[in-house]
Write a protein that binds this DNA or RNA. Structure first.
Lengths: 319, 319
DNA sequence: CTCGCGTCATGCCACCAGCGAATGTCTAGC
DNA sequence: GCTAGACATTCGCTGGTGGCATGACGCGAG
């Protein structure tokens, strides 16, 4: 039973073993062949290369100059194949490899870094890259095989449609609640399931002049008409304005952890803001790498830990 | 007809070609396989390594991370085997390799260097080493596979017996004549087939105190009893003594070219000194390297060019 | 929507490459 | 000369390997 579970490289092993032991018979015994098999293997090799590779002596064999030359290459080749095997195994055991993750901006605030931390702790050998971009871009990059996995968010139907069009697989992670960031000491600080109507008198800070592009705009469908006092795209500036008491703003739950601690917050009633679902997105058709496969459960667990209930952690007032 | 004249490395080529073309079908066409064969080759590879190597896309395939890893090694391995092939071919065409020649001292004076010159001119890539030693030692080194070829000399029967005992093959090259080196202007300068009796009054310079070890001693059997004036092992010193007129000495024909030009010389009648045959010696049983095989004809030709007749070149007096 | 096309996967068959067992041949050593 | 040990060779057979035909699937044109 000549160790058949390795690929057609038997002749290499046979050759090297013959050279090592200096005997067909011994090599055959070592490799679990019969002597005749070894004899013909070598004969075939010699025919193939058109030159004798071993001198047949009365007691065993000795490599000719050609044999020695080939031996060097054969050993190098075996080593090469061995390395391939080892590295491939390491890849499978996630001792090496790469994982290219993409996510939308607010996911990069807390959820993804936290999961990445757990992943890196479990698989230090894997090189992880993270980039944040808009959902549409992430889906495109998945399809282009620039990313292995992405965390995307958006309107359930539209996002799923976009993903399907690009051949991207979506797995829902959580439905994201919305918070309102309030100036310190605000009267509504810590409230849960706040109705937007209660905020009708507030001055709002929007992320863009076009309401449709903003979180706030997505609430327009419910008949709510906010008074927009400022338009600021920058996240830091936005918080600054809120902290200074110039207005309030919507904050996705995932970004709550990134809120400056002096801000008060309150959760919005789910009926007043459309659900924004967060998905794990993976390319369809391509077999997931071991790294991506290992990342997904961690991502699910991380999402699970996020509040699906009425309020998030530290939702009541500043520290 | 899948290019069957190369050794079981087909899977490497198949794999690399699939990765290169990104298609089983195209790879099959390029390698003169059918698509099904390629499909199963890859499937077998994937089973072997326990991981998918290609993502099957609607249009062709693309290597997975494991595939890319294996691809690097596969290409390296193919290159390695290719190098082996090329170097082996170069070895066969004597564009590389080595030739370890040994010879007895006087052969190193002229015959062997001359042949080596011709050889190196024809095969500049071959690394040639030359060592000179005594015949017995040369035979031993041949048997020990330290030399590829040797030029030895000695008494026909004894030498052949020694060679047989060591498993060394002998091929006669020439029967060496003997010269006498004479002081400049000596009365016998240029004589041919000189009888030793004519030299009875001369003072001889021997190489050793034990007559049996010397060329001169080998002539004792014929009843000749020389008057030994000096015993000098060193070749330069011996010539110096002769040149200064202190005596005469025997010189093997092969060393004639190395005689200092101011010495006169004469050939000795073959009946007065025992024949010393010069052989090419090669190890028996071991297949001769291409280099040794190419060297032998040159050696025969070189020996042929040496005088087998009554007198050598420039045998008459100094220049 | 359906059809056609191109792609890979698979079932079935044939072939021969390669193995095992037994035998032959050569050499060395006693 | 005989024995022992090594490689070579022969014969019969199995299993791997490729070819052919077909199936499954996704895409894109009409």
């Amino acid at each position: 039973m000549p160790d058949s579970h390795d690929f057609p490289t038997a002749w290499l092993r046979v050759f090297v073993e013959v050279a090592r032991t200096g005997s067909f018979t011994a090599a055959a015994a070592a490799l679990d062949y019969t002597q005749s098999a070894v004899s013909r293997q070598i004969a075939a090799l010699e025919a193939e290369f058109g030159t004798p590779l071993f001198d047949r002596l009365p007691r065993g064999v000795r490599p000719t100059e050609s044999g020695r030359l080939l031996l060097r290459h054969a050993e190098a080749t075996l080593a090469q194949l061995d390395r391939a095997r080892v590295e491939l195994a390491a890849l499978g055991r996630l001792e090496s490899g790469r994982l290219r993750v993409g996510c939308f901006a607010t996911a990069a605030a807390s959820l993804v870094p936290q999961v990445l931390g757990a992943f890196r702790a479990a698989h230090p050998g894997v090189v992880v890259t993270l980039e944040s971009s808009l959902t549409a871009d992430l889906l495109r990059r998945l399809a282009e095989d620039v990313l292995d996995l992405a965390v995307v968010a958006g309107d359930p139907v539209a996002t799923r449609a976009a993903a399907d069009a690009r051949g991207v697989l979506l797995e829902p992670l959580l439905d994201e609640r919305m918070l309102v960031a309030l100036p310190p000491g605000h009267r509504l600080a810590g409230r849960r399931d706040l109705r937007l109507a209660e905020l009708a008198d507030e001055s709002w800070i929007a992320g863009s002049e076009r309401p449709g592009d903003t979180l706030l705009g997505s609430a327009l469908g419910s008949g709510f008409r906010p008074h927009v006092g400022y338009v600021v795209g920058d996240w830091i500036a936005k918080q600054g304005l809120v902290a200074a008491g110039f207005g309030i703003t919507l904050v996705p739950a995932l970004a709550a952890a990134a809120l400056r601690p002096d801000l008060a917050r309150a959760t919005v009633h789910p009926d007043d803001v459309p659900v924004r679902t967060v998905w794990a997105a993976t390319p369809r058709g391509v077999t997931p790498g071991a790294a991506a496969a290992a990342f997904l459960p961690l991502l699910r667990a991380g999402a699970e830990a996020f509040p699906r209930g009425p309020a998030g952690p530290a939702v009541s007032g500043p520290a």
